[in-house]
């Protein structure tokens, strides 16, 4: 696989990961009256997944060396 195709494959995988993370079933699991360090579980969960996704995305789209 060329680096570009590999990147595309990773991005599609990331998309699926994001879609799954932002939706049911995980979303249903955190939709309850639970608290993490004084913050609502759903709020913490959604923003954590979001942050993680952005971090992975930033690493994945990095330009190849020498560009």
């Amino acid at each position: 696989m060329t680096p570009e195709r590999l990147r595309s494959a990773r991005l599609v995988a990331l998309f699926l990961l994001g879609w799954l993370g932002f939706n049911t079933p995980p979303l249903r699991l955190v939709s309850r009256d639970a608290w993490v360090a004084g913050l609502p579980l759903a709020w913490v969960y959604l923003f954590s997944v979001w942050t993680l996704l952005i971090a992975l995305l930033a690493v994945t789209v990095r330009p190849p060396r020498g560009e």
Partner: peptide
């Protein structure tokens, strides 16, 4: 939380942006 999907969608859109 109802406002959030409006921004999660574009986030996912940005993931596929390069493709």
């Amino acid at each position: 939380y109802g406002f959030l999907p409006i921004y999660l969608g574009p986030t996912l859109g940005a993931v596929l942006g390069w493709v």
